[in-house]
Amino acid sequence: MSAPKLNVADVAGLARLSLTPDETTKFTAQLSQILAHMETLGQIATGDVPEVVPPAQPVLRPDMPTPSLSVEAALANAPAQSNDLILVPKIVE
C-alpha cells in the first residue's frame, strides 16, 4: 500500500477540531511522514494471529445499586447550568 493522501482538515472536522492554515500545513507534512513509516506494517504477514485479549479474567457487575453523586457534586464542574440541567447552545437536529 502507498501512503494515502491525508486530508487533515476533513479528519480534524470528524474529531471536532479546527486547525489554523499553518497547523494544517504542518500537520499534513508531519502526519504524512508518520503514515509512511506505518506503511511498513503492510509487509508483515498476519494470517492466523490470535486476538489480543488482556491477561485478566473479566468480571461482570451484579445488578445492585451503588450511591450516585449528589446533584451538587455532579454539576460542580459544569461550565453552564440552570435548574439542575447542564446547558449547551440549542441542539438542532
Partner: peptide, 9 residues
C-alpha cells in the same frame, strides 16, 4: 428522578 440525581463519574 430529580434532574441529574442518578449520575456518577
Amino acid at each position: 428522578g430529580a434532574a441529574n440525581s442518578q449520575v456518577c463519574p
